[in-house]
């Protein structure tokens, strides 16, 4: 990383989405099939204005969207044992990793940043689904442990934003071991009496949903995100029947008591600010005035 990138922070005017495509480009909504102008889509935080379908966004876009003035500092993540099994299916895992790094311009499926939300210091650990389906291996586990350590060091809240298909199969049992490891990260934040907030996005499944993602003090979900342990296809194959409409979606989880609230992307920052201030500023001056 050059000194420039560490010096110049992304500005909110960059918008939530990097503009690499011309503004007159059209996108087709995967949910309602309507055509959307690229400019309108980015202005709307990658939410379809026809049907409110929330498209996937990357970790850096999350940071810019949520931190005050879109300003944040990236936390460097430690190097990890990247190919513990020397795994090879149709392709070598080492090659797959290298190719993904080159084509996606990402190092791994998680990024961590420090900044402020509503004036409160926060650490956000956010997933890039684009990087091998956001799957959780050693790097993701180490990312969450680093985020927790930073949160404790800064006396900050920890916010996790998963977008993941689950375990990184190519890392075998070590990917399973990230379930306890990320749970330890949550415990360390909890022991420091700092809030741990989870924003569940589409999709959050498998070993990710069955570990740190379901252990939040406050759990928020983006609308209509798939959130489950076993994926719909696995369940259909097991029970041999079609699943009900809306099954395992955010609103279904809200109804079943698994999340606190479903919040539209445009309202996330405001909601998060309120939650953080309620927990971190229990005796704010405004509160005194009213009393």
């Amino acid at each position: 990383m050059s000194w420039l990138t560490t010096l110049i922070r992304p500005k909110i005017s960059d918008s939530a989405v990097k503009s690499e495509v011309p503004d007159n480009l059209w996108h087709k909504c995967a949910s309602c099939s309507n055509m959307i102008f690229h400019k309108d889509l980015t202005a709307n935080l990658l939410v379809c204005h026809h049907c409110q379908h929330h498209m996937r966004i990357g970790a850096e876009e999350r940071f810019t969207l949520l931190f005050d003035e879109g300003q944040w500092n990236k936390v460097e993540l430690p190097k990890v044992w990247s190919d513990p099994l020397k795994f090879k299916d149709k392709k070598r895992y080492a090659d797959r990793l290298r190719e993904t790094r080159n084509s996606k311009k990402l190092q791994e499926a998680i990024q961590v940043a420090v900044g402020k939300i509503g004036g409160i210091t926060c650490v956000i650990a956010a997933f890039d689904f684009d990087f091998m389906g956001g799957s959780m291996g050693m790097a993701v586990g180490e990312g969450l442990l680093t985020a927790a350590r930073q949160a404790v060091a800064h006396n900050a809240a920890l916010i996790a934003i998963p977008a993941s298909g689950g375990a990184r199969m190519q890392e075998g049992i070590l990917s399973l071991m990230q379930m306890p490891r990320t749970t330890i990260a949550v415990q360390q934040v909890r022991e420091a009496h700092l809030p741990y907030i989870v924003i569940l996005t589409d999709p959050t499944t498998g070993g990710v949903s069955a570990s740190f993602a379901m252990l939040g003090d406050v759990t928020i979900a983006e609308p209509n995100a798939l959130i489950c342990f076993a994926g719909p296809r696995v369940i259909e194959e097991t029970i041999r029947e079609k699943l009900p409409e809306g099954f395992q979606r955010s609103e279904y989880l809200l109804e079943h008591g698994m999340v606190d609230m479903v919040v539209h992307r445009k309202d996330l920052r405001a909601r998060l600010t309120t939650v953080l201030q309620l927990i971190m500023l229990p005796n704010s001056p405004q509160l005194k005035k009213r009393a």
């Binding site: 379930m179 949903s209 570990s211 379901m214 489950c228 369940i235 699943l243 698994m258």
Partner: peptide, 22 residues
Amino acid sequence: PGIDAEARGQAEAIASSVDVCL
């Protein structure tokens, strides 16, 4: 992997078990 298990929070149940173990 079943409808009832998902409805009652299989993911949360496993996550919390790991949490309790630790």
